[in-house]
Amino acid sequence: MGIRKKRRAAVNGDICVACGCCVKVCPLSAIQIRHGVRADVDPERCVGCGKCAKECPASVIEIQEVQG
């Protein structure tokens, strides 16, 4: 049986507009807007559900598979 890899949201900070739409939909409060500049994901909390990526108006959030 294959081991399911963990998934996590990753923000492309260069084009993030820091609107905060992702923050509103995150069920685990795993994403925050840092200093009004970009969204920042807490890797300890994020489970990669993808709600933020779906909501992001600039589509700058990707759900990536991570090791461990």
Binding site: V17, A18, C19, C21, H35, G36, V37, E55, C56, P57, A58, S59
Partner: peptide, 23 residues
């Protein structure tokens, strides 16, 4: 997307620039 305006909203761009300068 519903809040696509946020991407190019002049107020949002302006406040983000201020935040960038401050941080």
């Amino acid at each position: 997307k519903p809040r696509s305006w946020c991407v190019c909203c002049p107020m949002g761009t302006m406040t983000q620039l201020i935040c960038k300068a401050k941080s």
